[in-house]
Amino acid sequence: MAVDRRLQHGEVFEVAGQTGAVGHQLVYGGDFSTTQQKGIRGGTVPPVGETFPTRAFPTTDYTLAGIFLQDELSVLDGTLRAYPALRYDYYELEPKTGDPLFTGTAPASQSKSHLSPKLGLVWQARDWAGLFFNYAEGFKAPAPNQVNNGFANLVSNYRSISNPDLKPETSQTFEGGVRLRGDRWAASATAFTGEYRNFISQVLVSRNFTAASPGLYQFVNLNQVRIRGLEGRAQAELGHGFRLNVAAAYARGTQETRGVKTPLDTVDPFKAVAGLSWRDADDRFGGQLIATHSAGKAQDRAGGTCGTTCFTPSAFTVLDATAYWNLARQLTLRAGVFNITDKTYWWWSDVRGLSQTSPVLDAYTQPGRNVAVSLTARF
C-alpha cells in the first residue's frame, strides 16, 4: 500500500508589447509541489524469509519548485519568431529516519538547484512549410525511491539498494526539423541530439542471483550519455469520416566512462504506429484500427548488464481495434479487441537485463488476444 499526499500549485502570466518592429509576448510563472511519499508492504502471509509489515522505501517529504521567464520575439511580419527562456529549479528530498519498518541503508537527504536556459526559433517560410530549431538545457531531480531503496526478494535472490550519492541529471539538447501542412493533411520531421551528465539509470550491479550473492539493482549516474534520433508523424483527412495517422521514432544511445564507449541499453528499438480511424458526421460512434511495429533489439546494442547472454526480443507487429458509441451526451460505451493476431511478444524495456536462459521470460510477455469494454458517465 502506498500513500501520496500532495500539494501542488502553478501560475502562468502573459504580457504583450511592441518595441519598434519587434513584437513581444512575455510569459512568466512558476510551479510548486510538495509530496509525502509513504508506502508499506503487508498482508496475511509474507513470502518466505520475510516479515510483514515492512517498507521498500522510507517515508519521504519531496519538494519541487520552479520559476521561468520566456519572451516571444516576432519580426518580419511574424514569419520569424524567437523564444528565449530561462528556468530555475529547486528540489528537496527529506526522508524520515529511525523507522524500524525500513531495514535498508540509513536514508539520505538531498537538496539542489539549477538554472537552465533555452532558445527556440521558428521560420514560417511559406504558408504550407515552416522550419524550427530548439536548444535547451535540462535538469532532472532524482526521485525519493531512486536515492533511498531497501526492497529485497529473498526467494528470487535479488535486492534493490539505495544510492545516497545519486546526483541530479543535467542535459543539453539540440533539435531541428520541418513542419508541412495542407488543406487536409499535416506532417513533421525532427532530428535531435542530446548530451547528458549524470544520466540516471537503474543497473544490475551484481547478477549472480544466488542466496550467498544476490542480484543487486541500483540507480546510478552514468558519466556521459549521448542520445540521437529521428522522429516523424503525419496525418491526413481521407474524407467520409476517415483519418489516417502515422508516427515513427528511431533513437541510438551511447555512454562513455573513462574514454570507453558502450551502448546505452535503455534506448528502445525503432517503433512505428499507424492508425486508420472513422467517425460519423455527428460523432455518435466511431472506431480505429491501429498497427504497432517494433524492431528487434540488436545484440550489440543490448549494453553491458548481461553481455552476450542478454535476451533480445525479436521484431513484432500488433493489431488493435477500438470503437466507441456516445449513447447520450454524458454516457459513452467503449470496446476494444487488442492483440488481434494473438502475437507473443516482449517490449525491450520490460526484459532489459534478463538473460537468454532466464526461467521467467514468459512472465514478461504482453497479453495475448484480449477484449475490454467500458462505460463512462460524466456528471
Rank of each mutant, 00 (worst) to 15 (best):
Q36T: 15
S33F: 02
P58D: 10
R181V: 04
E237N: 11
S314N: 14
D265R: 03
Y135L: 14
Y135M: 08
T292F: 02
V351P: 10
L331F: 07
L289S: 09
V75H: 00
S33W: 00
L86N: 01
R87V: 02
N221E: 03
T308Y: 06
V48N: 06
I227A: 01
A321T: 07
F57C: 04
E14C: 08
P95G: 02
G98L: 08
N153M: 01
G130S: 15
V3G: 10
G66H: 01
L204E: 12
F57P: 03
N145R: 13
A211K: 12
A248E: 12
N134Y: 02
F285K: 03
L154N: 14
Y62W: 11
G138K: 04
Y135V: 05
L180T: 00
T309V: 09
D265E: 15
R81N: 13
A125P: 07
S355G: 15
L204Q: 15
A281S: 14
L216Y: 12
T19R: 12
E92Y: 02
Y345F: 14
L26W: 06
D282W: 08
S162V: 00
V147S: 06
L361N: 02
T35C: 01
W185T: 00
F209I: 07
A249N: 15
L115Y: 02
Y135D: 04
T257K: 09
Q299L: 12
T376H: 14
F174E: 05
G304M: 01
R126D: 13
R243M: 06
R81Y: 01
Y83M: 11
D4N: 15
Y158R: 01
L64S: 09
V273M: 10
A328L: 08
L276M: 12
G194R: 05
G241W: 00
L289Q: 07
T51R: 08
Y217T: 14
T63F: 04
A136S: 14
A129P: 05
V15A: 14
D31H: 10
A129R: 04
R197A: 14
S213C: 01
S162Y: 03
V122H: 08
D300V: 10
E14T: 14
A141E: 07
T332W: 01
S277Y: 08
F219N: 15
Y62P: 10
F32I: 10
R352T: 08
F192A: 07
S162F: 01
R228Y: 05
P53W: 06
D350V: 13
A212Q: 14
A212M: 08
H240S: 13
